[in-house]
C-alpha cells in the first residue's frame, strides 16, 4: 500500500506540471452605463468590465429596446477585461437591456444582462424589428480561427483526433475479441 501511495504521489506531481492550470471564472464587476442607470441621452458604446481578462472571440453583447428592437451597432470587441459594443442613436424612451454572453477564461460561457432606462426619446431608428436571437455562428476574430485552422492542418488537434480514432478502432476490436473469448472460457467450464 505504501508503494502504491508513493507512485500516486509521483504521478500527481508529474501531472501538476503537465496539465495547463485552470483559469478562473469571470465575474461582471462593472458596466457603463451602470445597472439600473437612468440616462437622458443614449450611450454611444456599452462597456462591460469583468474581474479579469475575457477570452477573445465568442464574446457577444446585444442591446434590446422597449419593444424588442435591436440597437447594437457592429461587432463586439474585447480589450483585456473590457468588452464593448457600439450603440446606434437610441429611439423611444424606456427600458433597454444590454445582454451579454462571454467566454470565461476557465472555458465556461457566462451570460447576463445590464438594464438601463432612457428618459428622453432619441432620434434613432431600430436596426431591425425584433429579430430572433441570433447566434454568433463564427467567432468574431478571424485571426483566431485562422490560427486554429492552421494548427489543425499542421497536426495539433487534427492529429490527436486521428490517433484517438485509431486507438478506438484497435482497442474496440481487441475488447470484443477478448471479452468473447473470456465468455467462451467461462461457458466451457
Amino acid at each position: 500500500m505504501r508503494r502504491l501511495l508513493t507512485v500516486l504521489l509521483f504521478a500527481c506531481a508529474a501531472l501538476m506540471g503537465v496539465v495547463t492550470p485552470a483559469q478562473a471564472h469571470n465575474v461582471l464587476i462593472g458596466s457603463d452605463p451602470a445597472e439600473g442607470a437612468s440616462l437622458a441621452e443614449g450611450p454611444r458604446t456599452i462597456t462591460l468590465t469583468f474581474d479579469q481578462t475575457v477570452r477573445q472571440g465568442f464574446a457577444q453583447i446585444s442591446v434590446t429596446g422597449p419593444d424588442g428592437t435591436r440597437w447594437e451597432d457592429g461587432k463586439t470587441t474585447v480589450d483585456g477585461a473590457k468588452v464593448s459594443v457600439a450603440v446606434r442613436p437610441l429611439g423611444p424612451a424606456g427600458q433597454y437591456v444590454a445582454g451579454y454572453r462571454i467566454m470565461s477564461s476557465d472555458g465556461h460561457p457566462v451570460a447576463g444582462k445590464v438594464t438601463f432606462t432612457l428618459t428622453a426619446a432619441g432620434t434613432g431608428a431600430a436596426a431591425q424589428p425584433a429579430p430572433a436571437a441570433t447566434a454568433p455562428a463564427t467567432p468574431q476574430t478571424p485571426g483566431l480561427s485562422a490560427q486554429a485552422a492552421e494548427a489543425a492542418q499542421n497536426g495539433g488537434a487534427g492529429m490527436a483526433v486521428l490517433w484517438i480514432v485509431g486507438a478506438l478502432v484497435v482497442l474496440g476490436g481487441a475488447t470484443v475479441v477478448a471479452l468473447r473469448r473470456g465468455g467462451d472460457r467461462e461457458a466451457s467450464r
Partner: peptide
Amino acid sequence: QLNPGVIPTPGMIARYVDDFGAGQGMLF
C-alpha cells in the same frame, strides 16, 4: 455549448480543444 444554435463541425471541435483547457482536459 459555446456555439449555440449550430451543430459543431470537426473544425469547431478541433478549435475548441486547441483553445480551451477544459477540452484538453477531457481529451487527456
